[in-house]
């Protein structure tokens, strides 16, 4: 579903990604783990078009999307729940969700009616969001904002969803909730690329995992294979 080949990207003159390749098959959850600064978030940004890669190929559902604008890639079916959540603070929770489906809703009128079933689906998944539908997103707690960010990405009915550091800055209890949600998504058959600092938990939900080191993939394999890898075990799962 998503194929990345020999991706190079960076900021200014410093290159963060130095030839990264990975693949996410339809209906699977793939984890991307690695140390701080290895380039995980940069990978996500380069794939979704928030950052323009300098070289390489990104193929989404058979279509080369490398170098397109982020908004274009999003309309082609890639949803990115970014690091730090980035919900639209001044807008209400419901508006945030509606904007998640921006690409496939009418621009002026009738969008609320059209989005009704999708909204209900999200509210079923996150009942807390229904309670807060009219509240502005900025007033939500960190955990609720993360739910909103995931819900907003789901609203697009994406082919592939990128989920970047969903546990960042959250209390351990909330982190557990986030992982429960991810497991639910997996059961619902969502194709997911997950970046996570809690590598152990990430490996528990993932079907396949890549370990990043200095801008490229160092090791990859199924979680079981990685658990057998001495080096990975000591460096990331210690």
């Amino acid at each position: 579903m998503l194929l990345v080949e020999d991706l190079h990207a960076g900021y200014g003159t410093s290159e963060v990604l130095t030839g990264l390749s990975l693949e996410v098959r339809a209906g699977t959850v793939v984890a991307l783990i690695g140390a701080n600064g290895a380039g995980k978030t940069t990978t996500m940004r380069a794939v979704s078009g928030a950052l323009r890669p300098s070289r390489g190929r990104v193929v989404l559902d058979g279509r080369d999307v490398q170098g397109l604008d982020a908004s274009r890639i999003a309309r082609l079916g890639l949803a990115h729940a970014p690091e730090g959540r980035k919900v639209f603070g001044p807008l209400t929770v419901e508006d945030n969700l509606l904007l998640g489906a921006y690409a496939r809703l009418p621009r002026f009128f009738g969008f609320r009616r059209r989005a009704k079933s999708d909204l209900d689906r999200i509210y079923e998944l996150f009942p807390r969001l229904r309670e807060r539908a009219r509240q502005t997103a900025g007033t939500l707690s960190g955990g609720e904002q993360q739910m909103l960010a995931i819900g907003r990405a789901l609203m697009a009915n994406p082919k592939v969803m990128l989920l970047d550091e969903p546990s960042m800055g959250l209390a351990p209890v909330i982190v557990q909730e986030v992982f429960r949600t991810i497991r639910q998504l997996k059961e619902a058959g969502i194709t997911l690329l997950l970046v996570e600092q809690f590598a152990r938990s990430a490996l528990e939900v993932a079907d396949y995992a890549y370990v990043m080191e200095r801008g490229r993939i160092a090791v990859h394999g199924t979680p079981a294979e990685l658990h057998r890898d001495e080096r990975v075990l000591s460096a990331y799962l210690g």
């Binding site: 908004s71 980035k86 807008l91 921006y102 009418p106």
Partner: peptide, 26 residues
């Protein structure tokens, strides 16, 4: 009241995140 108008405010709140929703900031 319109989705386009809300997109307008989304760009104003967070341009990059809006792009990720498929909203063209340009």
């Amino acid at each position: 009241r319109t989705l386009l108008g809300k997109a307008f405010e989304a760009v104003s709140a967070d341009r990059d995140a809006a792009e990720l929703m498929g909203i063209s900031a340009t």
